[in-house]
Design a binder for these strands. Sequence first.
DNA 1: TGCTTATTAGTAATCATTATTAAATAGATA
DNA 2: TATCTATTTAATAATGATTACTAATAAGCA
Lengths: 131, 131
Amino acid sequence: MITNKQRLTSQKKIIMDYLASVDTHPSAEIIYQAVKRKLPQISLGTVYRNLKQLKKSGQVIHIPYRGTTYFDANLKLHHHFICLNCGRIIDFWSSTQNLNNVIGKQTDIGKIESYKLIFYGKCHKCFSEEE
Amino acid sequence: MITNKQRLTSQKKIIMDYLASVDTHPSAEIIYQAVKRKLPQISLGTVYRNLKQLKKSGQVIHIPYRGTTYFDANLKLHHHFICLNCGRIIDFWSSTQNLNNVIGKQTDIGKIESYKLIFYGKCHKCFSEEE
DNA sequence: TGCTTATTAGTAATCATTATTAAATAGATA
DNA sequence: TATCTATTTAATAATGATTACTAATAAGCA
């Protein structure tokens, strides 16, 4: 029998509160440092475990960049702009997605040099192999 | 004085040839395994170093997924579809970029469940701080 | 052909993340 | 409220991907 009930621990609450309080996109390590100020005995593994769970349950999204994962608890549909110089990840609230002439465009955040668009789903092969 | 001349070594050539020959999106490890069949003494570090250089000079693009980096030498503008079930990364040649109603859409590759759009460039802050 | 410097193989080190485990605790139930 | 049990925790070891280091090799220009 599988019981799969998520429990709201103080650790998870503090992690979620922290994520809700920032408009940056912190890594697990940064979250750990911040959260440790309120809960000094928390361990980095706990931060990772909770982030994984929150990701799985759709409460946070993640942005991979240069080998590390950055987190975002803002679930309103938006995109991201990453500064190739300082590494900052900035929310990008564009209404239109005409990507045809976007390269070189000046936006309110900065100048777009490139972009990456990745779709996720289930391929036909996997779909047809389902039991 | 800075000299920055790239040399075409046999290792680099074989890596590029391999990437040009596939329509999959191999990781450094997979590339290493493939390339080793032609050049048995090649080392994994050499593969990584060359991929890094090719990336820097714009000859390959990379797709990060679940902690590993996948490579693509096809420079024609296209996107990617990642199967959340089998992990396969498939080229996605969509002509339109209307992302508004894309979730749930059935495509010739599979069913889209989500997507990620990331822009890269230089933020205003970094631009203005330039000397 | 010789010279200079980028590149290599081999290996150690690093970084981000996950696994392991015994103890603690959330939250359901008596 | 006390009890119970599966989930979560802290601490730490382990893993996986990637980078750094170093002496030897080899592009490719003069």
